[in-house]
């Protein structure tokens, strides 16, 4: 087992453990902490794949902004333990089975398409040598994808307006 594979399995185990703990924790803050663990582990996996910029953005935006917002709202609303209302154990069992089936289906389908990806990439497609190049990434954003990028700024503007309208108290 190479060192890289070892690191992968460590981070993968960490992220799965975080995701499982997100389900089983009773308190929203503990769930949020578990999700932060998942996100940091994923950032580590991105680094392993050489996607440095994405890893940094993952931690800065997901870890440092979005999840802080979640924690902030949980603290603000003083959310207590989760209460369980409908006690249908019967519905839970097929639910788990169906989710497992979904996992298997998604995994096999995607893995099969990943194989075709590798073969198509080698036959003449333009292969970018340096996957960790922030420079090339920014060139792509501001040249090839400049319209989607501008659209996202509108999206954020709309989101800001929406948040303000929602949070405003009626006077």
């Amino acid at each position: 087992m190479t060192a890289e594979l070892l690191v992968f399995f460590l981070l993968a185990a960490l992220s799965v453990a975080g995701a499982v703990s997100l389900i089983f924790q009773k308190h929203p803050i503990h769930s949020a902490l578990s999700l932060i663990v998942v996100m940091v582990a994923l950032a580590g996996l991105y680094l392993l794949m050489g996607a440095e910029f994405v890893a940094a953005v993952q931690i800065i935006v997901y870890g440092g902004a979005i999840m802080v917002l979640f924690v902030f709202v949980i603290m603000l609303l003083n959310a207590g333990l989760e209460e369980h209302t409908s006690e249908s154990k019967l519905a839970g069992f097929p639910g788990i089975l169906l989710a497992l089936a979904l996992m298997g289906f998604v995994a096999t389908t995607l893995a099969r398409s990943a194989g075709s990806f590798v073969s198509s990439a080698t036959d003449g497609g333009k292969i970018v040598a340096n996957l960790s190049s922030t420079r090339q990434l920014s060139t792509m954003i501001f040249k090839d994808f400049v319209y989607p990028f501008e659209l996202t700024s509108f999206l954020i503007l709309i989101a800001i307006l929406g948040a303000i309208v929602l949070a405003q108290r009626e006077s």
């Binding site: 803050i29 440095e52 940094a56 931690i59 800065i60 870890g63 902004a65």
Partner: peptide, 23 residues
């Protein structure tokens, strides 16, 4: 090579220490 971003990432996570201590 992304030294400054690493620093910002660490600073961004620093909020949790204070927020969680308070909660």
């Amino acid at each position: 090579s992304i030294g400054l971003l690493v620093l910002f990432a660490i600073t961004a996570l620093g909020v949790y220490g204070v927020a969680l201590a308070g909660w």
